[in-house]
Design a protein around this nucleic acid. Sequence first.
DNA 1: CTCGCATCGAGAGCACTGCTCTCGTTTCGA
DNA 2: TCGAAACGAGAGCAGTGCTCTCGATGCGAG
Lengths: 238, 238
Amino acid sequence: MADKTTTPPAAGSIRARVRAEMIDQIKTIARRHIEAEGANLSLRAVARDLGVVSSALYRYFANRDDLLTALIIDAYDSLGDAAERADAAVPDRSDVLARWLAVAHALRTWSVDRPHEYALIYGSPVPGYAAPRDTVEPSTRPVMVLGAILADAKAARRLSNENATPIPTALRLEILRVAETIGAKVTAPIMARAMIAWTQLFGAISFEVFGRLNNTIDHRTDWYDYQARTMATFIGLT
Amino acid sequence: MADKTTTPPAAGSIRARVRAEMIDQIKTIARRHIEAEGANLSLRAVARDLGVVSSALYRYFANRDDLLTALIIDAYDSLGDAAERADAAVPDRSDVLARWLAVAHALRTWSVDRPHEYALIYGSPVPGYAAPRDTVEPSTRPVMVLGAILADAKAARRLSNENATPIPTALRLEILRVAETIGAKVTAPIMARAMIAWTQLFGAISFEVFGRLNNTIDHRTDWYDYQARTMATFIGLT
DNA sequence: CTCGCATCGAGAGCACTGCTCTCGTTTCGA
DNA sequence: TCGAAACGAGAGCAGTGCTCTCGATGCGAG
């Protein structure tokens, strides 16, 4: 969270409840503004909508970037939730292909439904950079889902054997470290392919959300599905 | 260009020359500011750097968005140039794999050298969307290079035969229209793979430029090269 | 060669922004 | 219960995009 403005009032008090509600309302209204007109978030406009004077907001967020950071964290969590739920909803846990497709489509659906929130987390870093420490943990949640799928795919031997292309040693070690981080002890070539596919997925979503498909591809769900399936084959998921 | 502010003075005149120089200076300074601190471009700051009062800029650009649009067009052209030059620099025109790699690396190099300009054109649409008509033609230049490579690859029979995955008809037609647009009369499955690879490349660049590789992959040129090579194989370029 | 018009930069001004500081009021907890 | 902490209102500062007016300057048609 982001309320280093004042020392937080002790947990049980009425003030603590009101404060939490206030923070929630601020974030909700701010999210509405962002969804309406992009990252040009105006604190004063949020304050107006909330029926409060602008300086009051500074009791809850040290500055505009702090508010944005809070929204970014929430967005990551929301996206992570969506991915995890989509994965969990596949009954046959060993059907790793279905799980990959479910997660892939969940990522896209979440994104096209909230283009500006997507832009907030996967678009260009907005104001003065500085992705704060607090954002890195939530940002890993979606990729952890991929890790689970990979791990289960390996366990179920539903991962085709790699046709290895040589990888420079130093890079290979970094890739293996990524595999370890997301809890999938697969070989470097397979992990590399998974990372490539993951990158492709977000490239596809970015292209769609940022308007790169306009006047080109109208059957977007079909196109995305085709990409996701092709990349699943590419990884070797069966 | 973007100077609907006033009727442009007749071509030969001194005023026309001065005006063109002024526009250039404004864009140069604006570009410098963007490269220094992102898309939060301040017209007044540009005016100050130029030793001129802010209202004077409005003789040359109708508003801030117009200036940004001009910068976006220039960025597209610059990136297109880089891609075309990289392609042209490969002596053996039939070595389509080398050409693909050259273009891929040129795209990345251009982008990591100018992260904020890259964000301008491939990041989230900044203020109120509205990519103006003038931007669409320059934005196609990089992908036209891909088209040329594909066309030559087909002509030289250096494109592996596809292992076709069925594509929904409507989508297939759209993909074929893309192929036609970029001047590569290849089959839909091959074109689809090319588009997937292209999407992957920009996903990879975005991940790197927007900081998604921080604390994860440090050998970035190696990693990108591996991705580009893998995608070349994926397309079937040999 | 000249004279009216288009273009130019300066400057003031408007509405807006993020953010700070002060000042009474309310609420908490020791 | 009473001092300290937290709160919202309000004024104010520096900055922004953009508009309008006003003299000065260069242009091209006569």
